[in-house]
Protein backbone atom coordinates (compact mmCIF):
# COMPACT_ATOMS: atom_id res chain seq x y z
CA UNK A 1 0.00 0.00 0.00
CA UNK A 2 1.54 3.26 -1.06
CA UNK A 3 1.49 6.01 1.47
CA UNK A 4 0.28 9.32 0.11
CA UNK A 5 1.35 12.45 1.89
CA UNK A 6 -1.38 13.68 4.10
CA UNK A 7 -2.69 17.01 2.75
CA UNK A 8 -5.36 18.38 5.02
CA UNK A 9 -5.45 21.71 3.20
CA UNK A 10 -6.36 20.27 -0.20
CA UNK A 11 -8.98 18.09 1.40
CA UNK A 12 -10.55 21.02 3.22
CA UNK A 13 -10.61 22.95 -0.02
CA UNK A 14 -12.35 20.09 -1.82
CA UNK A 15 -14.83 19.88 0.99
CA UNK A 16 -15.82 23.53 0.77
CA UNK A 17 -16.23 23.31 -3.01
CA UNK A 18 -18.49 20.29 -2.68
CA UNK A 19 -20.45 22.06 0.04
CA UNK A 20 -21.03 24.97 -2.32
CA UNK A 21 -22.22 22.55 -4.99
CA UNK A 22 -24.59 20.79 -2.64
CA UNK A 23 -26.07 23.99 -1.28
CA UNK A 24 -26.66 25.32 -4.81
CA UNK A 25 -28.35 22.06 -5.80
CA UNK A 26 -30.47 22.18 -2.65
CA UNK A 27 -32.06 25.32 -4.01
CA UNK A 28 -33.60 23.23 -6.77
CA UNK A 29 -34.03 19.79 -5.24
CA UNK A 30 -35.49 20.82 -1.94
CA UNK A 31 -34.79 19.14 1.39
CA UNK A 32 -32.64 16.36 -0.02
CA UNK A 33 -29.12 17.47 0.79
CA UNK A 34 -28.15 14.00 2.12
CA UNK A 35 -29.07 12.34 -1.16
CA UNK A 36 -27.43 15.17 -3.07
CA UNK A 37 -24.21 14.72 -1.13
CA UNK A 38 -24.21 11.01 -1.86
CA UNK A 39 -24.95 11.68 -5.53
CA UNK A 40 -22.01 14.11 -5.74
CA UNK A 41 -19.84 11.56 -3.94
CA UNK A 42 -20.80 9.00 -6.55
CA UNK A 43 -19.84 11.37 -9.35
CA UNK A 44 -16.53 12.30 -7.69
CA UNK A 45 -15.75 8.61 -7.37
CA UNK A 46 -16.35 8.33 -11.12
CA UNK A 47 -19.28 5.97 -10.65
CA UNK A 48 -22.65 5.75 -12.30
CA UNK A 49 -25.80 6.35 -10.37
CA UNK A 50 -29.05 4.46 -10.29
CA UNK A 51 -32.06 6.34 -8.96
CA UNK A 52 -34.87 4.09 -7.97
CA UNK A 53 -38.03 5.90 -7.18
CA UNK A 54 -41.60 6.67 -8.03
CA UNK A 55 -42.31 9.02 -10.92
CA UNK A 56 -42.61 12.65 -10.05
CA UNK A 57 -40.32 12.95 -7.06
CA UNK A 58 -37.62 14.84 -8.95
CA UNK A 59 -35.25 12.29 -10.41
CA UNK A 60 -34.91 14.12 -13.69
CA UNK A 61 -34.57 17.43 -11.94
CA UNK A 62 -31.76 16.04 -9.86
CA UNK A 63 -29.88 14.79 -12.90
CA UNK A 64 -30.34 18.03 -14.75
CA UNK A 65 -29.33 20.12 -11.75
CA UNK A 66 -26.09 18.21 -11.30
CA UNK A 67 -25.23 18.43 -15.00
CA UNK A 68 -25.90 22.12 -15.00
CA UNK A 69 -24.00 22.94 -11.83
CA UNK A 70 -21.00 20.95 -12.98
CA UNK A 71 -21.02 22.64 -16.35
CA UNK A 72 -21.39 19.36 -18.21
CA UNK A 73 -23.22 18.52 -21.38
CA UNK A 74 -26.48 16.67 -20.81
CA UNK A 75 -28.61 14.22 -22.80
CA UNK A 76 -31.76 12.41 -21.88
CA UNK A 77 -32.67 8.98 -23.14
CA UNK A 78 -36.21 7.78 -22.59
CA UNK A 79 -36.09 4.00 -22.54
CA UNK A 80 -38.95 2.08 -24.08
CA UNK A 81 -39.41 -1.50 -25.11
CA UNK A 82 -38.70 -0.65 -28.76
CA UNK A 83 -35.43 1.14 -28.04
CA UNK A 84 -32.68 -0.22 -30.26
CA UNK A 85 -28.95 -0.20 -29.48
CA UNK A 86 -28.47 2.17 -32.44
CA UNK A 87 -30.83 4.62 -30.73
CA UNK A 88 -28.35 4.73 -27.87
CA UNK A 89 -25.00 4.60 -29.62
CA UNK A 90 -25.77 6.23 -32.94
CA UNK A 91 -26.04 5.10 -36.50
CA UNK A 92 -24.02 5.28 -39.75
CA UNK A 93 -26.02 6.78 -42.58
CA UNK A 94 -25.01 6.86 -46.25
CA UNK A 95 -24.21 10.38 -47.30
CA UNK A 96 -24.92 10.91 -50.94
CA UNK A 97 -22.80 14.03 -51.24
CA UNK A 98 -19.68 12.34 -49.89
CA UNK A 99 -20.63 8.94 -51.27
CA UNK A 100 -19.76 7.29 -47.96
CA UNK A 101 -21.25 6.28 -44.64
CA UNK A 102 -21.19 8.96 -41.97
CA UNK A 103 -21.61 8.19 -38.26
CA UNK A 104 -24.31 10.09 -36.46
CA UNK A 105 -23.50 9.83 -32.73
CA UNK A 106 -26.33 8.82 -30.45
CA UNK A 107 -27.30 10.37 -27.10
CA UNK A 108 -24.56 8.38 -25.33
CA UNK A 109 -21.95 10.85 -26.59
CA UNK A 110 -22.43 13.30 -23.76
CA UNK A 111 -21.04 13.95 -20.30
CA UNK A 112 -24.15 13.36 -18.28
CA UNK A 113 -26.65 10.88 -19.68
CA UNK A 114 -29.99 10.49 -18.01
CA UNK A 115 -31.38 7.08 -18.92
CA UNK A 116 -34.99 7.32 -17.82
CA UNK A 117 -36.82 4.16 -16.84
CA UNK A 118 -33.98 1.92 -17.85
CA UNK A 119 -35.92 -1.17 -16.93
CA UNK A 120 -38.37 -0.54 -19.76
CA UNK A 121 -35.67 -1.06 -22.39
CA UNK A 122 -35.06 -4.51 -23.80
CA UNK A 123 -32.03 -6.43 -22.60
CA UNK A 124 -30.31 -5.71 -25.91
CA UNK A 125 -30.60 -1.98 -25.55
CA UNK A 126 -29.71 -2.22 -21.85
CA UNK A 127 -26.54 -4.11 -22.51
CA UNK A 128 -25.45 -1.66 -25.20
CA UNK A 129 -25.79 1.11 -22.67
CA UNK A 130 -24.19 -0.79 -19.83
CA UNK A 131 -21.25 -1.72 -22.03
CA UNK A 132 -20.71 1.95 -22.81
CA UNK A 133 -20.84 2.67 -19.06
CA UNK A 134 -18.25 0.06 -18.26
CA UNK A 135 -15.82 0.61 -21.12
CA UNK A 136 -16.35 4.37 -21.45
CA UNK A 137 -16.19 3.88 -25.21
CA UNK A 138 -18.46 2.42 -27.91
CA UNK A 139 -17.57 0.21 -30.86
CA UNK A 140 -19.04 1.24 -34.17
CA UNK A 141 -18.31 -0.88 -37.21
CA UNK A 142 -15.09 -2.13 -35.74
CA UNK A 143 -13.91 1.28 -34.58
CA UNK A 144 -13.65 2.18 -30.91
CA UNK A 145 -15.00 5.65 -30.26
CA UNK A 146 -14.13 7.13 -26.86
CA UNK A 147 -16.87 8.77 -24.89
CA UNK A 148 -16.25 12.25 -23.46
CA UNK A 149 -14.70 12.60 -20.02
CA UNK A 150 -16.13 12.77 -17.52
CA UNK A 151 -18.96 10.43 -18.41
CA UNK A 152 -21.78 9.80 -16.01
CA UNK A 153 -24.89 7.79 -16.43
CA UNK A 154 -27.76 8.58 -14.15
CA UNK A 155 -30.36 5.89 -14.72
CA UNK A 156 -33.76 5.80 -13.13
CA UNK A 157 -36.15 2.98 -12.64
CA UNK A 158 -39.59 2.62 -11.21
CA UNK A 159 -39.77 -0.11 -8.59
CA UNK A 160 -43.52 -0.49 -8.27
CA UNK A 161 -44.45 -0.82 -11.91
CA UNK A 162 -43.32 -4.23 -13.05
CA UNK A 163 -45.62 -4.84 -16.06
CA UNK A 164 -43.77 -4.81 -19.37
CA UNK A 165 -40.35 -4.21 -17.80
CA UNK A 166 -37.03 -6.02 -18.04
CA UNK A 167 -35.47 -5.78 -14.57
CA UNK A 168 -31.70 -5.37 -14.67
CA UNK A 169 -29.92 -8.59 -13.70
CA UNK A 170 -27.63 -8.38 -10.63
CA UNK A 171 -24.55 -8.58 -12.78
CA UNK A 172 -25.57 -5.40 -14.51
CA UNK A 173 -26.79 -3.64 -11.42
CA UNK A 174 -23.21 -4.04 -10.30
CA UNK A 175 -22.17 -1.44 -12.93
CA UNK A 176 -23.83 1.27 -10.91
CA UNK A 177 -21.67 2.47 -8.05
CA UNK A 178 -24.65 3.61 -6.01
CA UNK A 179 -28.34 3.20 -5.95
CA UNK A 180 -30.23 6.06 -4.32
CA UNK A 181 -33.83 6.95 -3.85
CA UNK A 182 -35.20 10.40 -3.24
CA UNK A 183 -38.46 9.61 -1.55
CA UNK A 184 -41.23 12.07 -0.91
CA UNK A 185 -40.16 15.55 0.11
CA UNK A 186 -40.67 16.71 3.68
CA UNK A 187 -43.61 18.90 4.60
CA UNK A 188 -41.76 22.22 4.47
CA UNK A 189 -39.88 21.32 1.33
CA UNK A 190 -43.06 20.30 -0.41
CA UNK A 191 -44.79 23.54 0.58
CA UNK A 192 -41.89 25.57 -0.75
CA UNK A 193 -42.02 23.54 -3.94
CA UNK A 194 -45.72 24.14 -4.33
CA UNK A 195 -45.54 27.84 -3.65
CA UNK A 196 -42.24 28.62 -5.30
CA UNK A 197 -41.20 29.20 -8.89
CA UNK A 198 -41.24 26.55 -11.53
CA UNK A 199 -38.22 24.27 -11.22
CA UNK A 200 -37.53 24.38 -14.95
CA UNK A 201 -37.31 28.15 -14.89
CA UNK A 202 -34.99 27.97 -11.91
CA UNK A 203 -32.82 25.44 -13.69
CA UNK A 204 -32.50 27.68 -16.71
CA UNK A 205 -31.12 30.44 -14.47
CA UNK A 206 -28.58 28.16 -12.76
CA UNK A 207 -24.91 29.02 -13.23
CA UNK A 208 -22.24 26.28 -13.16
CA UNK A 209 -20.33 26.07 -9.87
CA UNK A 210 -17.52 23.94 -11.30
CA UNK A 211 -15.68 23.69 -14.54
CA UNK A 212 -14.87 20.34 -16.11
CA UNK A 213 -11.25 20.74 -15.01
CA UNK A 214 -12.32 21.26 -11.40
CA UNK A 215 -14.25 18.05 -11.49
CA UNK A 216 -11.38 16.08 -13.00
CA UNK A 217 -9.05 17.57 -10.39
CA UNK A 218 -11.36 16.50 -7.59
CA UNK A 219 -11.54 13.00 -9.07
CA UNK A 220 -7.76 12.84 -8.97
CA UNK A 221 -7.81 13.92 -5.36
CA UNK A 222 -10.15 11.05 -4.57
CA UNK A 223 -7.44 8.70 -5.78
CA UNK A 224 -4.98 10.28 -3.35
CA UNK A 225 -7.13 9.79 -0.25
CA UNK A 226 -5.19 7.60 2.13
CA UNK A 227 -6.40 4.17 3.14
CA UNK A 228 -4.70 2.74 6.23
CA UNK A 229 -4.13 -0.93 6.89
CA UNK A 230 -6.54 -0.66 9.78
CA UNK A 231 -9.28 0.49 7.44
CA UNK A 232 -8.65 -2.36 5.02
CA UNK A 233 -8.96 -4.69 8.01
CA UNK A 234 -12.37 -3.24 8.74
CA UNK A 235 -13.46 -3.43 5.11
CA UNK A 236 -12.40 -7.04 4.88
CA UNK A 237 -14.29 -7.81 8.06
CA UNK A 238 -17.39 -6.26 6.50
CA UNK A 239 -17.00 -8.26 3.30
CA UNK A 240 -16.39 -11.49 5.19
CA UNK A 241 -19.38 -10.89 7.42
CA UNK A 242 -21.66 -10.18 4.44
CA UNK A 243 -20.77 -13.60 3.10
CA UNK A 244 -21.86 -15.39 6.23
CA UNK A 245 -25.02 -13.46 7.08
CA UNK A 246 -27.90 -15.94 7.04
CA UNK A 247 -30.42 -13.66 5.31
CA UNK A 248 -28.44 -13.27 2.08
CA UNK A 249 -28.21 -15.53 -0.97
CA UNK A 250 -24.65 -14.36 -1.52
CA UNK A 251 -22.36 -11.77 0.00
CA UNK A 252 -20.41 -8.84 -1.37
CA UNK A 253 -17.96 -9.57 -4.18
CA UNK A 254 -14.40 -8.25 -4.35
CA UNK A 255 -15.65 -5.79 -6.96
CA UNK A 256 -18.20 -4.60 -4.43
CA UNK A 257 -15.30 -4.17 -2.00
CA UNK A 258 -13.43 -2.01 -4.51
CA UNK A 259 -16.56 0.02 -5.14
CA UNK A 260 -17.06 0.52 -1.40
CA UNK A 261 -13.50 1.71 -0.97
CA UNK A 262 -13.79 4.09 -3.90
CA UNK A 263 -17.03 5.57 -2.67
CA UNK A 264 -15.65 5.85 0.87
CA UNK A 265 -12.61 7.73 -0.44
CA UNK A 266 -14.84 10.22 -2.23
CA UNK A 267 -17.05 10.54 0.86
CA UNK A 268 -13.99 11.25 3.01
CA UNK A 269 -12.88 13.96 0.59
CA UNK A 270 -16.36 15.46 0.56
CA UNK A 271 -16.01 15.70 4.33
CA UNK A 272 -12.65 17.37 4.14
CA UNK A 273 -10.48 14.43 5.12
CA UNK A 274 -7.42 13.04 3.37
CA UNK A 275 -7.95 9.59 4.86
CA UNK A 276 -10.84 7.16 5.05
CA UNK A 277 -12.49 6.37 8.37
CA UNK A 278 -14.75 3.45 9.19
CA UNK A 279 -17.52 6.04 9.41
CA UNK A 280 -17.04 6.79 5.71
CA UNK A 281 -17.46 3.15 4.80
CA UNK A 282 -20.53 2.92 6.95
CA UNK A 283 -22.03 6.06 5.40
CA UNK A 284 -21.70 4.82 1.83
CA UNK A 285 -22.37 1.15 2.49
CA UNK A 286 -26.19 1.22 2.17
CA UNK A 287 -26.08 3.07 -1.17
CA UNK A 288 -23.23 1.01 -2.57
CA UNK A 289 -24.17 -2.43 -1.29
CA UNK A 290 -27.94 -2.72 -1.19
CA UNK A 291 -28.48 -3.26 -4.90
CA UNK A 292 -25.65 -5.80 -5.00
CA UNK A 293 -27.06 -8.00 -2.27
CA UNK A 294 -29.81 -10.45 -2.96
CA UNK A 295 -32.07 -11.50 -0.15
CA UNK A 296 -32.46 -15.25 0.24
CA UNK A 297 -36.19 -15.04 0.74
CA UNK A 298 -38.60 -12.75 -1.00
CA UNK A 299 -40.02 -10.08 1.24
CA UNK A 300 -36.85 -9.57 3.28
CA UNK A 301 -35.53 -6.12 2.60
CA UNK A 302 -31.83 -5.84 1.91
CA UNK A 303 -31.77 -2.59 3.91
CA UNK A 304 -32.50 -4.46 7.12
CA UNK A 305 -29.67 -6.87 6.36
CA UNK A 306 -27.29 -3.98 5.76
CA UNK A 307 -28.13 -2.53 9.15
CA UNK A 308 -27.49 -5.91 10.70
CA UNK A 309 -24.19 -6.17 8.86
CA UNK A 310 -23.04 -2.79 10.15
CA UNK A 311 -24.06 -3.60 13.68
CA UNK A 312 -22.21 -6.89 13.86
CA UNK A 313 -18.80 -5.83 12.60
CA UNK A 314 -16.63 -4.24 15.26
CA UNK A 315 -14.54 -1.17 14.60
CA UNK A 316 -11.21 -1.64 16.32
Amino acid sequence: MSITPFKPKAAADASSRVAALVSAASGIVLGKSDVLRLAVTCLLAGGHLLLEDLPGVGKTTLAQTLARLLGLSYQRLQCTSDLMPADVIGVSVYDRNDSQFRFHPGPVFTQVLLADEINRATPRAQSALLEAMEERQVSVEGRALPLPAPFFVIATQNPSDQVGTYPLPESQLDRFLMRLSLGYPGRDAERELLQGRDRRALLADLEPVFGVDDLLDLQRQVDAVHVADALVDYLQALLARSRELPGLAHGLSPRAGLALLRAARAWALVHGRGHVLPEDLKAVLPSVATHRLVAREAGVRAEATITQLLRTVAVI
Partner: peptide, 9 residues
Protein backbone atom coordinates in the same frame (compact mmCIF):
# COMPACT_ATOMS: atom_id res chain seq x y z
CA UNK B 1 -18.94 2.55 22.99
CA UNK B 2 -20.74 -0.01 20.85
CA UNK B 3 -18.23 -2.28 19.14
CA UNK B 4 -19.35 -1.12 15.71
CA UNK B 5 -19.03 2.58 16.42
CA UNK B 6 -16.22 4.45 14.73
CA UNK B 7 -14.29 7.08 16.66
CA UNK B 8 -15.98 10.18 15.29
CA UNK B 9 -19.42 8.59 15.47
Amino acid sequence: RAAHEGPLE
